[in-house]
């Protein structure tokens, strides 16, 4: 259900960088730890984009795997379930290497052809 609010955040970010131009695509990087359901996000994105510069834009989602790193033993591993203890030393000094992203990587906008260019 958080996909509705997340859609608004994506659109606000895209519009901020669009400089008044119409947005045709938004490229998003989504870490698996964000618990985002891609189809749901796409559904809400289309809905929330109406009457904004993002209306009709496509939303491309690059899903980033969740990888953790244990600080003491420098082990890095991928997780499929939310288990955040180090499997080697059992320690809790574990940081998220990747998987926490929720980032607008780029947008594609429409621009009038420059007449001066050859």
């Amino acid at each position: 259900m958080h996909e509705l609010s997340l859609s608004s955040a994506i659109i606000n970010t895209a519009v901020k960088h669009a400089g008044g131009r119409r947005v045709t695509a938004v490229n998003l990087r989504v870490g698996r730890l964000r618990q985002v359901i891609p189809d749901t996000l796409e559904f809400y994105f289309e809905f929330v984009a109406r009457d904004t510069l993002c209306e009709g834009a496509t939303l491309a989602q690059q899903v980033i795997d969740a990888r953790l790193r244990c600080r003491p033993c420098a082990l890095e591993w991928e997780i499929e379930i939310p288990a955040f203890r180090c499997p080697t030393c059992g320690g809790s000094e574990v940081e998220i290497a990747t998987g926490n992203e929720f980032e607008v990587e780029s947008i594609e906008v429409e621009e009038a052809a420059c007449i001066a260019s050859k």
Binding site: L6, H17, E103, E111
Partner: peptide, 13 residues
């Protein structure tokens, strides 16, 4: 009209 890619790299939140 042509399409231009704009690099953003910004957390949406």
């Amino acid at each position: 009209m042509h399409r231009v890619k704009v690099t953003v790299v910004e957390e949406a939140l």
